[in-house]
Design a protein around this nucleic acid. Structure first.
Lengths: 75, 75
DNA sequence: GCTGTTGTCAACGGATCAGATGACATCCAT
DNA sequence: ATGGATGTCATCTGATCCGTTGACAACAGC
């Protein structure tokens, strides 16, 4: 990951990462939302890079997806 | 990192990680704050695990420390 | 033609973050 | 012992989050 990356680009990249991990499990946004006890719309905002999520929120997503949090951040 | 880790423990662990990385560079909290253009007190809250920081905030810290964000999350 | 699923957007409200300021105790060097 | 650096705490304020609700278009299956 490039240093001093633009905030918006960073969040969009993170979102894409999550979409990819979710798709690999053939999950819909609703499936992921259910798995981490969150809202479908909240997942959508995350995947589109519209928000700057908290680290623990991301950890809950990672747990639901069954991946390491650090792995989710690599791109 | 154990799955379904308690939120407070998770944030404390993250803080400890940052203290460790900062200490390895022989930096004070003020040094780190300066390096990422943040507040000394903000760094302190982070290191003590008092807050649930945003992912981009953490990326700025990682950049300042010269480490990969994913590396900062491994514990 | 319906009906359910999916992805996307907007808006509201309570909760929390992050910057800023001020304060205090401890430690170290002069 | 005076001064500076350090770590820690509290408080205030604007910004942003996350959950929630409601809505809409596109699509698939019955």
């Amino acid at each position: 990951m490039p240093l001093a990356m633009d905030k918006s680009s960073f969040l969009k990249g993170l979102g894409s990462n999550i979409v990819k991990l979710r798709s690999e499990k053939n999950w819909s946004q609703s499936d992921l939302a259910r798995a981490c006890f969150k809202d479908r719309q909240s997942i959508e905002r995350l995947e589109k890079g519209k928000i700057n999520p908290s680290i623990y929120y991301l950890k809950e997503i990672a747990d639901a997806l069954g991946v390491e949090l650090s792995h989710m951040l690599m791109f």
